[in-house]
Amino acid sequence: EELVKLQGERVRGLKQQKASAELIEEEVAKLLKLKAQL
């Protein structure tokens, strides 16, 4: 659960930094994978 929170914050940070869409999608995919494991 802690990992999900951390990953969510990372995604939010990337969006604020206007990171590339590919990078954000990659991180979102990791986030969804972590959530699925809960």
Results as ranks from 00 to 15, higher is better:
4 V>I: 10
32 L>A: 15
15 K>Q: 12
4 V>S: 05
37 Q>P: 13
22 E>G: 10
9 E>D: 11
10 R>D: 08
5 K>C: 02
19 A>H: 04
1 E>S: 00
30 K>Q: 08
6 L>G: 06
28 V>W: 04
26 E>V: 08
38 L>W: 07
10 R>M: 09
20 S>H: 07
38 L>E: 14
5 K>F: 03
13 G>M: 15
28 V>Y: 11
30 K>T: 05
18 K>Q: 12
18 K>P: 11
19 A>W: 03
3 L>H: 04
12 R>G: 13
11 V>W: 03
24 I>W: 00
15 K>N: 07
32 L>T: 13
28 V>A: 14
23 L>D: 09
38 L>P: 10
11 V>Y: 01
32 L>I: 08
9 E>R: 02
30 K>D: 12
8 G>N: 09
17 Q>M: 12
34 L>P: 14
9 E>K: 04
14 L>Q: 06
17 Q>T: 11
33 K>Q: 11
20 S>Y: 00
25 E>H: 11
38 L>N: 09
15 K>A: 08
35 K>C: 15
6 L>A: 14
28 V>N: 12
17 Q>L: 05
38 L>G: 15
21 A>R: 08
23 L>M: 15
31 L>G: 09
28 V>I: 04
22 E>F: 04
25 E>W: 01
33 K>C: 02
7 Q>T: 04
21 A>C: 06
6 L>W: 04
6 L>T: 10
10 R>F: 04
6 L>P: 06
7 Q>D: 02
31 L>K: 11
13 G>I: 14
24 I>K: 11
18 K>C: 08
13 G>D: 12
23 L>K: 11
1 E>K: 07
35 K>M: 15
38 L>H: 10
31 L>M: 04
2 E>C: 00
33 K>D: 15
37 Q>I: 04
35 K>H: 02
3 L>S: 09
19 A>F: 03
23 L>G: 07
23 L>C: 12
13 G>P: 05
5 K>A: 05
30 K>R: 06
27 E>L: 00
26 E>C: 10
8 G>K: 15
14 L>N: 02
19 A>M: 10
3 L>Y: 01
3 L>G: 02
34 L>H: 09
21 A>V: 07
25 E>V: 04
26 E>Y: 05
10 R>L: 10
35 K>I: 04
31 L>P: 13
29 A>G: 08
2 E>K: 01
6 L>Q: 14
4 V>W: 02
22 E>M: 09
11 V>I: 10
20 S>K: 08
2 E>D: 15
4 V>G: 05
9 E>F: 01
15 K>R: 08
19 A>V: 07
22 E>L: 07
30 K>H: 05
34 L>S: 10
16 Q>W: 02
18 K>L: 07
12 R>K: 11
19 A>G: 05
6 L>F: 08
23 L>P: 11
24 I>Y: 13
30 K>A: 09
38 L>V: 06
15 K>S: 06
17 Q>G: 09
14 L>T: 04
17 Q>H: 02
27 E>V: 00
32 L>N: 15
30 K>M: 05
20 S>T: 07
5 K>G: 03
10 R>T: 11
9 E>S: 04
34 L>C: 06
17 Q>E: 14
34 L>R: 07
18 K>T: 08
27 E>N: 08
29 A>N: 06
6 L>N: 10
32 L>C: 13
19 A>P: 07
20 S>F: 00
5 K>D: 04
22 E>C: 08
24 I>E: 07
25 E>Q: 12
28 V>G: 06
31 L>C: 06
24 I>L: 11
1 E>L: 01
6 L>E: 13
15 K>V: 08
31 L>D: 15
18 K>F: 02
7 Q>P: 01
16 Q>G: 05
11 V>F: 01
7 Q>H: 02
7 Q>E: 00
19 A>L: 02
35 K>E: 14
34 L>E: 13
20 S>E: 12
18 K>A: 11
20 S>P: 13
5 K>M: 07
10 R>H: 07
29 A>Y: 02
8 G>W: 02
24 I>D: 12
16 Q>H: 07
5 K>P: 02
33 K>A: 08
2 E>L: 01
14 L>W: 02
16 Q>F: 03
16 Q>L: 09
4 V>E: 07
8 G>C: 00
19 A>D: 04
15 K>W: 03
2 E>N: 09
4 V>Q: 01
25 E>F: 01
11 V>D: 07
8 G>D: 12
9 E>W: 01
4 V>Y: 12
32 L>H: 12
3 L>N: 04
19 A>I: 02
32 L>M: 14
22 E>Y: 04
14 L>D: 05
24 I>S: 06
35 K>P: 15
33 K>Y: 04
24 I>Q: 14
5 K>R: 05
27 E>W: 00
3 L>R: 05
23 L>H: 09
29 A>H: 05
2 E>M: 01
7 Q>K: 01
24 I>P: 09
30 K>C: 03
5 K>Y: 05
16 Q>N: 12
3 L>P: 00
21 A>Q: 11
25 E>A: 13
20 S>L: 00
26 E>R: 13
1 E>I: 07
16 Q>V: 09
33 K>R: 08
14 L>K: 06
8 G>Q: 14
2 E>A: 01
25 E>K: 11
30 K>V: 07
20 S>N: 11
2 E>S: 04
8 G>E: 15
29 A>S: 08
37 Q>G: 14
5 K>E: 10
31 L>N: 15
9 E>P: 01
17 Q>P: 03
28 V>C: 09
8 G>S: 12
9 E>V: 01
22 E>W: 01
33 K>N: 06
15 K>G: 04
32 L>W: 08
2 E>Y: 02
10 R>P: 12
25 E>R: 09
5 K>N: 07
30 K>F: 01
2 E>W: 00
31 L>V: 03
24 I>C: 04
31 L>T: 09
4 V>C: 02
4 V>A: 06
26 E>G: 07
21 A>Y: 06
27 E>Y: 00
15 K>D: 04
24 I>R: 06
24 I>V: 10
13 G>V: 14
18 K>S: 10
17 Q>A: 13
32 L>P: 13
37 Q>C: 09
27 E>T: 00
26 E>M: 14
38 L>A: 14
33 K>E: 15
27 E>A: 08
13 G>E: 15
11 V>E: 12
3 L>E: 14
6 L>C: 03
30 K>Y: 02
11 V>R: 10
12 R>V: 10
29 A>P: 03
4 V>R: 02
35 K>L: 09
28 V>M: 12
19 A>C: 10
25 E>N: 12
10 R>G: 05
6 L>I: 03
32 L>G: 13
28 V>K: 13
22 E>R: 10
23 L>S: 05
37 Q>E: 15
29 A>Q: 12
11 V>G: 08
26 E>F: 10
10 R>Y: 07
14 L>G: 06
12 R>C: 00
34 L>Q: 12
2 E>I: 03
35 K>W: 00
37 Q>D: 13
33 K>V: 03
34 L>W: 05
7 Q>F: 00
16 Q>A: 14
2 E>P: 00
2 E>Q: 02
7 Q>Y: 01
37 Q>A: 14
6 L>D: 12
16 Q>C: 04
20 S>R: 10
18 K>V: 05
26 E>I: 13
20 S>A: 11
1 E>A: 01
23 L>N: 09
24 I>A: 10
8 G>A: 13
5 K>Q: 10
12 R>S: 13
33 K>I: 03
3 L>F: 04
18 K>I: 03
5 K>H: 05
15 K>T: 11
30 K>P: 05
14 L>R: 04
20 S>D: 11
12 R>M: 05
13 G>Q: 15
20 S>M: 03
17 Q>I: 03
17 Q>F: 03
28 V>R: 10
14 L>F: 03
14 L>Y: 02
37 Q>M: 10
35 K>V: 15
34 L>F: 07
33 K>S: 12
11 V>S: 05
25 E>C: 04
8 G>P: 05
20 S>V: 01
8 G>R: 09
4 V>H: 02
28 V>P: 08
7 Q>A: 04
